[in-house]
Each structure stands twice: as structure tokens, then as C-alpha cells.
Amino acid sequence: MGYSTILFDVSDGIATITLNRPEAYNSFTRDMANEFADVWSRVRDDDAVRVIVLRAAPCPAFCSGADVKGGPGITPYRLPESRQKPWQMDDPAESLGPKSNKVWKPMIVAVSGICAGGAFYFLNEADIIICSDDSTFFDPHVSFNMVSACEPVGALARIPLSEIQRMVLLGNEERMSAETALRISLVTEITTRDDLWDRAGALATSIANKHPVAIEGSVRAIWEALSLPHREAMENALMYTQIGNPIAMAGTERKLGQKQKYQIR
């Protein structure tokens, strides 16, 4: 399947997805949501893919959220008449994130520039987020008299409540810098824009070199723990070690004192 709103490539165990609507600040549309649904199906079933890198075509924004200017055929939200059937409505952006589509291969998101509103659908299901030093983060919903709910609730697992509330309530009047995003653990690393893609690729390569059963089992156990009580989460975690370790460790020799190269972060 060819894509019109994203670029997709698989190489050396890494699936690279590039948001490709720079003329519209890489905002997402119905077509993009549908294309992501197809991509996640491919990624989930392709054993050649071990890790995902999500990035955006160069422009002032990584993603400015939903395209609300493109008209009924573009805007990802349902048409006004659909509100007469409220129990048949679903989240129009639920296809954007891998975890919502049962993909447990880790995703690294490389943010550059503006990251606003609906872009948090991508961040909220990322395993590692890095950003360029010129990145800014904000949620404009309330500035347009819209309730901000799905994106900030999804972010509760990643950043403190007080930071979410400030971002939501101030809307367009304040933007979070890359430094602030690092301080509150929204991102884990800041690079220059020129180095961003290479750094994301280096992190992905490190992950791709590890056993996929160990990686995917770890990702799934941790994400599932977010919606479970502590005791149940611990029991679930033990189950994953009992299932995954015999497969991932088959033929592995663990030597005491074996040295591995590492970096200090």
C-alpha cells in the first residue's frame, strides 16, 4: 500500500515513519489516521521490524495536531450530524498510536519544532521521546473554546498533573520549551535539529540488536501495568518473565563479570 501523508521504510530492524505534510505543519487528517492503522498492522506482523522511529518532514512543526482547516473531507473528526448518534462515536485519533493498535515493538519519537494538541497522541504512546533544542510543546484547545481531555489524560502516565494542568489551562498563551520538557520527563534527551534523526537512529539500532521477545515482553508488561492495581501488575509482570525468558535466553550464556560498553547519560 502506498501512502500519501506519511513515508514508511524498514531497514536493519528499524521501521521509520515520517509525517509528511510539511505544507500543513504535519497535522493529521482522516487519511493519515487510516494510513497509520495500516502501518501498525504491517509493523505488528513483520518480524523484520524490531523498533519504530517516528519523525516528521522538516518544517516549523513536528505536528500541529488535527487538521481543522482542511474541510469535512480532511478534518479527522466526525461530521456535526454524527453527534446525533453519540454512542457510535469513537476517538478519531485512536489509530495514531502503536499501543492502541496492539503493537508492542518500542517506538522512539523524535520531535522537532512545534508539538501541539493532537500531536500528544503520538507522544502518549511513545517509549522514548527525544527532541531538538528548538522544540516547543503546548495544547491550544481551550483557547478555541474546546475541551482538552483525551490528550492530557493520556499524558498523565508520563508527566506530573500540575504540569499538565498548566499546559491545558493556559492554552495558546504559553509554550513549554525543550528544557522544561526535559525537566518534567516529557522528553529524555535534547539534541540539535541537525543531529536529531541520527540520534534517534542510534537509539533504535541499540534496541534492534536485542532479542525481540525480551524487548516486546518488557514493553508490554510495563504498559499494561499502567492500568492495573499494583499487586495485579506485579503478578502480570512475573507471568511475562516466565513466558518470555525461556524463549529469549535460549542458547544464551551469562558470564559473571562480563563487561559491556556503556554510556553515561
Rank of each mutant, 00 (worst) to 15 (best):
D47P: 00
K105P: 02
A181E: 05
Q260A: 11
D9S: 14
G73Q: 06
L186Y: 12
S112W: 04
F62G: 02
A48S: 15
R265P: 02
S206A: 13
Q165F: 10
W197T: 13
G118F: 02
V10E: 10
D9M: 07
I129C: 13
I108A: 04
K85D: 15
I14T: 10
N245M: 09
V43G: 04
Q242D: 14
A157L: 10
S11D: 15
V43I: 15
A149L: 13
I14S: 08
E163R: 15
W223T: 12
S218V: 01
D195E: 15
D38A: 06
R55E: 12
S132M: 07
D134Q: 05
I17D: 04
N236S: 15
R50K: 15
E189M: 10
Y25K: 06
V49I: 06
C63R: 00
K69C: 04
S135I: 00
A48Y: 09
S41D: 11
M167Y: 02
F137H: 12
G71S: 08
G71R: 00
R199W: 06
K259I: 02
P92W: 00
L96I: 05
W87M: 13
G113V: 00
V147E: 07
E35V: 09
A248M: 06
L228S: 09
I159K: 14
A250D: 12
T241D: 12
I128F: 06
I159P: 12
S100A: 14
V213M: 05
V168Y: 02
A178T: 06
S206K: 13
V147C: 04
A202P: 01
G201S: 13
S143K: 03
E151Y: 00
R21T: 09
D67G: 04
V68K: 07
P246Q: 06
D134W: 01
K99G: 01
V213K: 07
D195S: 13
D31S: 11
W104A: 08
I243F: 09
